[in-house]
């Protein structure tokens, strides 16, 4: 028996909106520690890892570990029927081939339930090695989204270079080139407006902007984004989910042939 009650139901709505175009089908894993997901896009270029810790739910019952295969497009269609202020409860019986999403309006005057068919998904969790990243940049998530969107009008790839001077986002296309440098800036009124660069070694890597732009759909989940870079490793683009966990996107770099 599984019953997870999330008072801030909009968080789950936002999570689905941020991953449904990247991943078609995925197994949601439920254990006593939390509700999680790990899935690759169909081209095996990017990987998303989601964790919503059990402590973040108002009520969390998971009698035994369960893996529920869901089509994220269909799940998103159902969650879009929840109001932004609704409480969302996820329910499933052991061995059932369906999951139920229940939506309660804040005033309790409207209660809906949607039952969705589960699917068998053959997927193995990949081992993500612990890594010390050479450069870690934390910046306002809206600023990162703006940069990715702006650059994708000019080129298909972004070179992210971190030096002591700052983090540089560069692209090149048929119409010309673009370089955007964000300097470390910690003297701001609010901590979420800061750009913080922790660099042990300078690093420069190239990534497909199409994927970066897809990741920025998670911007609504967090005011800040953390970009962790090391040569020879996928970049990690992480959005913290308030007091509950995180959504992390891993993207393999492009290399010169």
């Amino acid at each position: 028996m599984l019953e997870l009650r999330l008072v801030q139901g909009s968080l789950l709505k936002k999570v689905l909106e941020s991953i449904k175009d990247l991943v078609n089908d995925a197994n949601f894993d439920c254990s006593s520690s939390g509700f999680s997901l790990q899935a690759m896009d169909s081209s095996h270029v990017a990987l998303v890892a989601l964790l919503l810790r059990s402590e973040g739910f108002e009520h969390y019952r998971c009698d035994r570990n369960m893996s529920m295969g869901m089509n994220l497009g269909n799940m998103s269609k159902m969650l879009r029927c929840a109001g932004n202020d609704d409480i969302i409860t996820i329910k499933a019986d052991d061995g059932s081939d369906t999951v139920t999403f229940m939506f309660e309006s804040p005033t309790q005057d409207k209660i809906s339930d949607f039952e969705m068919k589960l699917m068998d998904i053959d997927s193995e969790h990949l081992g993500i090695p612990e890594a010390e990243y050479q450069s870690i940049v934390t910046m306002p998530s809206a600023e990162f989204a703006r940069i990715c969107k702006d650059l994708s009008g000019i080129g298909d790839t972004v070179v992210i270079s971190v030096t002591k001077e700052g983090v540089k986002f560069s692209t090149r296309g048929d119409i010309g080139t673009a370089n955007i440098v964000c300097r470390q800036n910690t003297t701001v009124d609010k901590p979420e407006e800061a750009t913080v660069i922790n660099m042990s070694e300078p690093v420069s890597l190239t990534f497909a902007l199409r994927y970066m732009n897809s990741f920025t759909k998670a911007t609504t989940l967090s005011n800040t984004v953390t970009i962790s870079l090391s040569s020879e490793l996928p970049v990690v683009v992480e959005y913290k989910i308030a007091e509950m966990g995180y959504i992390r996107f891993y993207l393999a770099p492009k290399i010169e042939e």
């Binding site: 081209s43 270029v45 969790h125 081992g127 497909a208 996928p234 290399i255 010169e256």
Partner: peptide, 14 residues
């Protein structure tokens, strides 16, 4: 020319 690497080149199946 640039080549897109796969995530499977970095993260292994168990």
């Amino acid at each position: 020319m640039q080549r897109q690497q796969s995530i499977l080149s970095f993260f292994k199946k168990p």
